[in-house]
C-alpha cells in the first residue's frame, strides 16, 4: 500500500487571471467579447459566440476537427488562444455556406457522401478550402497528404478525396493526370447519381 497525491507539479495557491476583451471579424461580422486569457479560439467560438459548427475532437491539435480559416489560412482553432487573434479575420464553416446556399466544396461533400457521422466534416471542409487557397496540391497524392491533418473515424477518406478532386477538377487545378489510386479510378470520380 502506498499513498499517491494528485496535484499540480508546481503547486501555487489557486488564483484567476483577469479577463480580456477581444475583437474578431468572424464570417464578415465583427464581434467584441470578453474572455479569460486561457480561452482557446475554439472555445470562444463554441461557448461564447454560439458558433458550434466548429468541432472539438481532441483539444490538442491532433485531429483537425476544429479547423477554421484565419485570413484564408487553415489553422487548428484549439491551438490558439482567442486573445492572440485580436483583430483577426476568421472564417468558420458557417461562413462558407448555409444549408440553403452551399459552397462548391460543401455540395461536393454531399454528392460524394464524404462523411457519415458529420462530426469531422466542418473541419475537413475548412481544411479543404484552405488547401484550395494554398494552391499547392496538384495531384491526388498531394491532396491525400495535405488532408492528413484531419482525422475521420468513420473512414470516409476515399469520398473526401473524390469530393475535393471534383472541385479542383472543375476549377482546372489538377496538373497531373496520373492514374488515380483512391476513391475509384478517375472515370468513376463522378458521384453516384440517383
Amino acid at each position: 500500500m502506498s499513498t499517491v497525491i494528485q496535484k499540480p507539479l508546481d503547486h501555487q495557491p489557486p488564483s484567476l487571471p483577469p479577463t480580456q476583451s477581444v475583437r474578431l471579424t468572424i464570417n464578415s461580422q465583427e464581434s467584441h467579447f470578453t474572455v479569460a486569457p486561457w480561452t482557446t479560439l475554439l472555445d470562444a467560438l463554441r461557448e461564447h459566440l454560439d458558433l458550434t459548427g466548429t468541432k472539438k475532437g481532441c483539444d490538442h491539435g491532433q485531429c483537425g476537427a476544429c479547423t477554421v480559416l484565419i485570413d484564408g489560412k487553415r489553422i487548428n482553432s484549439c491551438l490558439t488562444l482567442a486573445v492572440m487573434r485580436d483583430g483577426a479575420d476568421i472564417t468558420t464553416i458557417e461562413g462558407l455556406g448555409t444549408p440553403e446556399n452551399l459552397s462548391p466544396l460543401q455540395q461536393a461533400f454531399i454528392d460524394h457522401d464524404a462523411f457519415q457521422c458529420g462530426y469531422c466534416t466542418p473541419g475537413q471542409i475548412c481544411s479543404a478550402q484552405g488547401l484550395l487557397n494554398e494552391g499547392k496540391a496538384k495531384t491526388e497524392a498531394e491532396v491525400r497528404e495535405l488532408m492528413s491533418g484531419n482525422l475521420c473515424r468513420c473512414g470516409a477518406y476515399p469520398n473526401i478525396l473524390s469530393a475535393i478532386m471534383e472541385v479542383m477538377d472543375k476549377d482546372g487545378l489538377i496538373m497531373d493526370t496520373k492514374e488515380w489510386s483512391a476513391g475509384g479510378a478517375k472515370p468513376e470520380m463522378d458521384p453516384i447519381n440517383s
Binding site: P99, T121, S194
Partner: peptide, 19 residues
Amino acid sequence: PTNRVDGPAKVAGTAKYAA
C-alpha cells in the same frame, strides 16, 4: 443511391451535437 437528407445540416455546421 440517394444523398443523405441530413447532409446540408452536417456540411454547413448547423447539425447540433450533444455539447
